[in-house]
Design a protein around this nucleic acid. Structure first.
Length: 309
DNA sequence: GTACAGGCAGTAT
DNA sequence: ATACTGCCTGTA
């Protein structure tokens, strides 16, 4: 189905950059169109081809299969008052610089079950591998939807993953994460954990629930909370953010210089208590929209390393 | 061959 | 609490 194109302001003229941030995994570009898996749906948007005179108007058209009315507001968080949120970081020079440098970068709202399973697959691996694992899972357990002559596979229902045997999951190349995938699917399928409950709960309570699940630790829990459970104060600290923190925020995190230097050398492998301490400090510094700061920091760190994915 | 990639759980101190 | 270890899999 076809949604009318938006009259976008400068704060949302570039949905591509948010997808390229690497926090969503199942989007692909063909020509002028992006296609993404969102639970049971295939989403698509197209930027307009250049006009005859070589100029480009910046209208974007949105589609979904099956129809998902107004998905772009939801997925790109157009309901956030981003101007207000970003202006809240004006006292931080690094984030302010990143905001100027990467216009249009936004958090994306992910489908909760898909988000949870995606990040469960993300441990100790890289983005191309995560994408491969998820695509394999979709192909094996999702359903096929043909759009524009291309085959897409929806994200598996938790029931299917819960019923799958570990050896079947292994054939998707997920390795030792198979056990964690089953654990997560089982928790959802049996109602031990419920996305709507967690959305209503506060950050700490929701996180505590997620941490009970085998395979979900601090970082993955924070990703799930930020990207799918409306906890915008969540601040996932992965290796990239850890680098950013030791590079730019040691003044904030370390009272004494020595400890900062020591941590710089290690600069990964945080203990659980370190994670908690850093997380609390940084969240009280950036405030209730810390997650947006994380998004800009993460993107900036990846950009400055000329990473490909 | 070996190191490494968006962490995590298990065990021993 | 912290230190240390192994882990599927594909790529460089």
């Amino acid at each position: 189905m076809h949604s009318p194109s938006h009259s976008f302001n400068c704060l949302f003229n570039n949905p591509e950059i948010s997808i390229n941030s690497g926090q969503v995994f199942l989007w692909e570009k063909f020509d002028n169109s992006w296609y993404g898996i969102y639970g049971d749906h295939v989403l698509k948007f197209s930027t307009s081809a250049p006009n005859d005179d070589g100029t480009k108007d910046n209208s974007i058209e949105f589609f979904s299969f099956p129809d998902l009315e107004g998905w772009e507001e939801r997925i790109f968080r157009l309901d956030d008052d981003i101007q207000k949120i970003l202006s809240g970081f004006s006292n931080d020079s690094l984030i302010s610089e990143a905001i100027k440098r990467y216009p249009g970068l936004r958090l994306m709202r992910q489908e909760p079950h898909q988000c949870m399973l995606s990040f469960v697959c993300s441990s100790n691996t890289n983005i191309p591998m995560i994408r491969r694992m998820l695509k394999n899972l979709c192909r094996k357990y999702g359903s096929k939807i043909v759009v524009d002559g291309k085959e897409f596979f929806t994200f598996p229902r938790v029931d299917s993953l819960n019923r799958a045997s570990v050896s079947e999951l292994l054939s998707c190349g997920v390795g030792y994460r198979a056990k964690a995938i089953k654990a997560a699917a089982h928790s959802i399928a049996h109602g031990n954990i419920d996305a709507n409950d967690l959305m209503r709960a506060n950050y700490d309570d929701a996180k505590e629930e997620l941490l009970k699940i085998y395979g979900i630790g601090n970082k993955i829990a924070d990703c799930i909370l930020l990207f799918s459970l409306e906890k915008l104060e969540a601040f996932p600290i992965d290796i990239w953010i850890a680098k950013a923190l030791s590079l730019h925020y040691s003044w904030l995190l370390f009272g004494n210089e020595k400890e900062g230097k020591k941590w710089k050398q290690i600069h990964q492998k945080m203990t659980s208590t370190q994670y908690k301490t850093f997380s609390e400090t940084i969240r009280s510094y950036f405030g209730k929209y810390s997650g947006y700061a994380q998004q800009y920091l993460f993107y900036h760190m990846r950009q400055s390393e000329y990473k490909r994915w």
